[in-house]
């Protein structure tokens, strides 16, 4: 008996046989890109609309306003952003700690001086049970897709290991407006420079429609997703 590998490959070759379909030229008449430029107002408005449809919380700030907003969201000393954001009550007690990837811009966290901020690295990772004790995570992103309301993380130092954006119940994802493209093909062609990186495409908080196809947001992944658009 031959080994499974050669037997399957030979079955495939036999199946295709002389009548093998000729390799087709792939018709690619679909849109390779949208009509609006990355980071344009049209694209940003579309992204916000899609994210809110998924019941993600969206915030638009300037770079100067970012530390204050993060403090507001994560229970630090409130900064320049006034007023509490709806649905963003800061966690208190045991779960008030925040985990961050090693390469996050430290200036973003300037308002979190009195918050327990823990860095997680590939060399010194927090255990899954430790991440379960952490209330929130802050990451950057690689690219965002407006039409589908999607943010993609690629595990680089400002985004961290996949586990840190998964186990904590609140994910605050900071996206620069210049990173927002209109269509899926634009994002894929940006990501294909490093297809080997672990990619996580996130479109809203975790959700299920398994019960009578009635959508429920918040199952195993973070139940609350904040997307912060920084101009």
């Amino acid at each position: 008996m031959s080994d499974a590998r050669s037997e399957i490959l030979s079955r495939v070759r036999d199946a295709l046989g002389a009548a093998a379909p000729t390799p087709a030229r792939i018709p690619r008449a679909y849109r390779p890109a949208g009509e609006h430029a990355a980071g344009s107002d049209e694209v940003l408005d579309l992204l916000v609309d899609r994210l809110e449809d998924y019941r993600a919380h969206v915030h638009r700030v300037t770079a100067a306003g970012l530390p204050g907003l993060l403090a507001d969201l994560l229970g630090g000393t409130p900064g320049r952003v006034s007023g509490r954001v709806p649905g963003a009550a800061p966690a208190r007690g045991a779960r008030s700690a925040v985990v961050v990837p090693p390469g996050l811009d430290p200036a973003w966290l300037a308002g979190l001086a009195d918050v327990d901020v823990r860095a997680d690295t590939r060399d010194a990772p927090l255990a899954a049970t430790e991440l379960d004790e952490v209330g929130a995570v802050v990451t950057a992103a690689r690219v965002a897709v407006a039409e589908t309301g999607t943010i993609v993380l690629d595990g680089e130092p400002d985004q961290g290991r996949r586990a840190i954006s998964l186990v904590p119940d609140v994910h605050v994802c900071v996206v620069r407006t210049s990173q927002v493209v209109q269509t899926v093909p634009e994002a894929v062609r940006l990501l294909d420079a490093h297809p080997e990186r672990p990619l996580t495409w996130i479109s809203g908080p975790s959700a299920t429609s398994d019960i009578e196809l009635d959508r429920v947001e918040g199952v195993h992944g973070p139940r609350t997703l904040h997307v912060v658009l920084v101009r």
Partner: peptide, 10 residues
């Protein structure tokens, strides 16, 4: 428009 999560690994 898109499912909540897609994971890719190599």
């Amino acid at each position: 428009r898109m499912n909540p999560y897609t994971s890719m690994w190599t």
